[in-house]
Every structure is written in structure tokens, then in C-alpha cells.
């Protein structure tokens, strides 16, 4: 079953007097449980496509269906609710709330969802352990390395058990070791939770983990290939329950 289907998406931006094409008749169907990489140079449209799939931006034309539901025509409020309950986001700059601890960052979204405090705490503790941050729950972002912060962001994204996780350049600010660990984590979560991952990147290390690679250029899909993940093929559940207090990041 398709997790998300994009049909003839077009999006243009005005920059001064210049019209920039963000998406040019992009059609893409992503199956549930896929780990897909959108790659391409800067300005190729991968972030625009990711934003459209996540309901952060609306296309000028075309349709997007998530879990069988058209989302391109939803109201702002409905889109916010969709993002809250069905989509997890991981950003390049981690984007954690600096005044909240790792646990509170993860719990915050669940609180907005209306989950009971006990369930929130239990789930937050579970996902933080799952991403390898057991023991670091009460640390604030400023007290953590970049890699650890990105893991908190991943924990926040998966805590509400979304069907889709969208990650925009998740390894761009990480060193090589942290990037590898993060991708191992994505791969494990993809396998263990059957969560669909769509990653926008131009990092070859990330692409190596993808089972499907979509190349974009000038707002168009120019290549869409399935591939055998070569990143860390032997990785099963690399970070599950493993505290990561080292010097990454």
C-alpha cells in the first residue's frame, strides 16, 4: 500500500521579479515502510517536495495523498493536526526547544496531542532509550552534542508513532561518526517500526542507506531507482538500549 502519492506537483516561487520553479510536474509514489532518499544539488526541489509531502507548504497544482487522504486541499488547521499526529519531522538544525530537557522536548508534542501524563512519560522514556539516550533524559540541548541533539529530534519525531518521518538534511551538521550512527538509527527504526522514512540529502553516506533513491534536478525527478542499501547492511538494531554518552557531534 502506498504511504504517500504525489501527482503532477508544481510549485513556483517569486524572488523579486524572478520566478523560480520549485517543483515541475513531480509524480512519486512511496510505499509504506520504505526508506527513500531524495537527492540532488541545492535548489533541485527536494526540500520543496519534502515540505509539500509534510503539509508544510501547499503545491500550486497537483495532488498529494497521504494514507489514502488528499492533503493538498486541507485547511491550515487540518494540516497542523495531520503533522501533529501522522508525520514526524527531523530538521537539519535539530530545532529542539532550548529551555526544555530531552525528555520534555519529546513529551511536549505528545502533550499537544493530548496524551495522558503517565503515557507521555512512559513513551518518552521508551523512545529516548531506543535512540540511545538513556541516562541523558534530563539534559538540555545546550548540554548535548550535535549527534545527541539530533537523536532527541528523532525521538521527538517518532514518539507520536507517525506513519511517515520526513528528514531534511538530517546529517548536514553532524560529523561522520554521528552521521553514521544516525543513519543506523533510521535504518533500525525503519525496519523495527515499519515507519516510512523520506530523507532529503546530498550526503552520499545517507544515500547509501536508502532502499530507493530519487534524484531531482530543477524541480523534476530525473531518476528513481531501487537499490540495495550499502550503508551498514549488517546493522540490525544498532542503537537500541545503547546509551550514547560519548564524544559524538
Amino acid at each position: 500500500m502506498s504511504a504517500i502519492v504525489c501527482q503532477d506537483l508544481c510549485k513556483t516561487f517569486e524572488q523579486g521579479e524572478q520566478r523560480i520553479i520549485g517543483l515541475d510536474r513531480v509524480s512519486l509514489s512511496i510505499e509504506a515502510g520504505e526508506l527513500l532518499c531524495l537527492s540532488g544539488p541545492s535548489g533541485s526541489g527536494k526540500t520543496t517536495l519534502l515540505n509539500a509531502m509534510g503539509g508544510l507548504d501547499t503545491p500550486d497544482s497537483g495532488s498529494i495523498t497521504l494514507g489514502g487522504r488528499r492533503i493538498d486541499q486541507l485547511s491550515r488547521g487540518a494540516l497542523a493536526d495531520l503533522r501533529l499526529r501522522e508525520i514526524g519531522f527531523v530538521f537539519q538544525a535539530y530545532n529542539l526547544i532550548p529551555v526544555l530537557s530531552a525528555r520534555e522536548n519529546v513529551e511536549f508534542v505528545m502533550q499537544v496531542q493530548g496524551l495522558a501524563p503517565a503515557l507521555r512519560r512512559e513513551r518518552a522514556a521508551g523512545v529516548l532509550t531506543e535512540v540511545g539516550l538513556a541516562g541523558l533524559e534530563e539534559r538540555r540541548p545546550a548540554e548535548m552534542s550535535g549527534g545527541q541533539q539530533q537523536r532527541v529530534a528523532v525521538a521527538r519525531a517518532i514518539a507520536s508513532e507517525p506513519q511517515l518521518v520526513l528528514a531534511d538534511e538530517p546529517t548536514a551538521n553532524l560529523d561522520s561518526q554521528s552521521a553514521t550512527q544516525l543513519m543506523d538509527l533510521f535504518q533500525a527504526l525503519n525496519r523495527n517500526r515499519n515507519v516510512t522514512f523520506v530523507l532529503a540529502t546530498h550526503d552520499p553516506r545517507v544515500m547509501a542507506y536508502a532502499r530507493r533513491l530519487v534524484r531531482m534536478e530543477d524541480g523534476r525527478v530525473i531518476d528513481d531507482v531501487a537499490q540495495q542499501p550499502s550503508g551498514r547492511p549488517s546493522v540490525g538494531r544498532p542503537s537500541v538500549g545503547r546509551p550514547s554518552v560519548g564524544s559524538e557531534g
Binding site: G54, L56, G77, A80, D81, L82, R83, L84, R85, I87, F89, F91, N95, I97, P98, V109, V112, R156
Partner: peptide, 16 residues
């Protein structure tokens, strides 16, 4: 603004 943008992206409503 950036932080509020992230919260909005995560699905927190402007009203909240």
C-alpha cells in the same frame, strides 16, 4: 520566530 516555526511544523497550532 524560528522556534515558533518549528513548533508550527510539528503541528502545534498558532492558537496554542
Amino acid at each position: 520566530t524560528r522556534e515558533f516555526g518549528v513548533m508550527l511544523a510539528l503541528g502545534v497550532s498558532p492558537g496554542r
